[in-house]
């Protein structure tokens, strides 16, 4: 591998973190979906590049899956759902954008601190790639926490899963089966959530999860 090769891999992994941050910053539903599509595209590129570097054809399939399902089908489907439900106005966040970004920076720092000393046997860039993957996972997790809206929570979950795939391709020799199963489980999760969305909509006329708490008799917290 030439230095340029690793540089490109590194750049792509880092771009995943960058797009994760941009996902956190979005406050429009459609922009969020678009950025998720970009997230998946970058993932596909990154996985594809790894496939080329590692001469591992099965990774190309993973990349293709990422491109097809996550960058095209799921965003388009979610787009339709959002239109159907008429919830494209804005995303309600629990925490403000500024603090969210600050916490995000903290999470990246944390994953670097955790990852770099643990994986001393690897090369410098591979270690940082792992740190990036962990950051993407943590940022996705945080997105699920800081958003009230079910659709954006789903996107947070899927960006989390993108981080897992990134980690898996970075670490050599992870079999394809695992990835396909992960991919499909996400698809299933997506379907389930999609159905749920409709059910919630029918019953409560909102997809704000706080409405569920209210119907359970809990008092809603102070809105941000």
């Amino acid at each position: 591998m030439t230095p340029l090769d690793t540089d490109i891999a590194h750049l792509l992994a880092g771009s995943m973190v960058l797009v994760s941050f941009l996902l956190l910053y979005q406050d429009r539903m459609f922009a969020l979906l678009n950025f998720f599509a970009i997230h998946a595209c970058v993932l596909a590129l990154s996985v594809g590049w790894q496939a080329y570097l590692q001469r591992a054809p099965h990774l190309f399939i993973t990349a293709l899956i990422a491109l097809l399902f996550k960058a095209v089908i799921i965003p388009v489907a979610l787009h339709r759902i959002v239109v159907r439900l008429g919830i494209h106005r804005a995303i309600e966040t629990v925490v403000g954008t500024g603090p969210t970004m600050l916490i995000g920076i903290g999470l990246v720092a944390l994953s670097i601190v955790v990852m770099l000393p643990v994986t001393t046997s690897e090369g410098a860039f591979a270690r940082e790639d792992l740190a990036f993957a962990l950051s993407v996972v943590l940022l996705g997790f945080m997105m699920m926490i800081t958003r009230r809206n079910a659709v954006s929570q789903v996107i947070g979950f899927m960006s989390l899963e993108n981080g897992l795939v990134l980690a898996a391709t970075g670490a050599r020799g992870m079999p394809l089966v695992v990835e396909i199963s992960v991919g499909f489980s996400i698809l299933i999760a997506f379907l389930v959530v999609g159905i749920f969305l409709f059910r919630i909509r029918e019953r409560c006329d909102t997809v704000d999860l706080q409405a569920l708490d209210m119907s359970r008799g809990e008092s809603p917290g102070e809105s941000a």
Partner: peptide, 25 residues
């Protein structure tokens, strides 16, 4: 401010990554 805050965070992130990766080991 949020838009510019993103720039600030990205700049900070870039600096932090360099602080970590450029360090002597």
């Amino acid at each position: 401010p949020e838009f510019l805050g993103v720039a600030l965070m990205l700049g900070l992130l870039g600096t932090m990554l360099l602080f970590v990766s450029r360090a002597p080991h």
